[in-house]
Design a protein around this nucleic acid. Structure first.
Lengths: 142, 142
DNA sequence: AATTATAATTAGAATAATTCTTGATATCGC
DNA sequence: GCGATATCAAGAATTATTCTAATTATAATT
């Protein structure tokens, strides 16, 4: 019996369908890569990585897969300035800290019990459906 | 004596130089438009608007001016998803609420006394230099 | 005030990320 | 298995933005 790392699901652990989206081979592989690569890869990063397993896949298909996964709430699309979009399988509500010296992107969670309306002067009647928090800066060497 | 609306500075009120940036005619006009149009125009919006006063200006120059103004901290560049960048003369620290029904972008200030570190689980040693908060949603009709 | 140096502007070409189009394949429901 | 529908692949098209090279304007120096 082989022990499996739950972070990296094997082929057969990715279901045929997720929240109404047919999980084709291409979508499975794209999704798998996002589960493994937690460093917010771009569409092109995913493309290069997925070619190992699906040598005939096209970049357009990677874009299609990513879009389908985003649309079905299976992954998140993250934008930093005008750079290429990045993709993220962490569905917890979180922001991103972009370390400008290393280029590394860290996920940043909310402290428990925080309510946006306590922090921001929202326009009256605002119903927030989606939040995007991006921080840029450096990490002090200890 | 003519009374002036302080929100809309007249030509002679825009100085020759702002924080080390030579305020050329083109930069002045671009800046003036951003002071007037508080609805976060794109580079192209600014371009079309500025042509009234400077018919020979080119889009490249508008981009150059906007970049120079951003670099000198005179205006802010704001990105929504992968849409065209928008520009903003509100230098107060603030986020944006994007009303998805009307398309209107509302500035969203922080409530007084709020400290980011109280709200987010920042990585240890993080020195935040810049914050970007974007909210998307609807405004309930009262 | 003329001369040189530096910076800004212009027009259009180039770039890069993404989307679109079209035809080919695969999959689903019957 | 067969038609309907969805997905995929390849490359063309699009769009925002940047770059290039030539021109013009401004500043600094004589």
């Amino acid at each position: 019996m082989v022990t499996q790392n739950p972070e990296f699901p094997a082929e057969n652990e990715i279901p045929e369908e997720i929240s109404g989206l047919r999980m084709t081979r291409q979508r499975q592989e794209v999704y798998r890569i996002l589960m493994q690569e937690r460093n917010h890869p771009t569409a092109n990063d995913v493309f290069m990585r997925v070619k190992d397993r699906l040598p005939n896949i096209s970049l357009a298909t990677v874009y299609n897969c990513l879009e389908a996964l985003v649309q079905h709430g299976i992954i998140r699309q993250v934008n930093f300035e005008r750079e290429s979009s990045r993709y993220c399988s962490n569905l917890q509500e979180h922001g991103h800290f972009h370390d400008q010296t290393t280029g590394v992107i860290h996920d940043v969670g909310f402290k428990p019990g925080i309510n946006l309306a306590d922090v921001l002067e929202l326009p009256p009647g605002a119903l927030v459906e989606d939040i995007e928090i991006t921080l840029r800066g450096k990490i002090a060497v200890s």
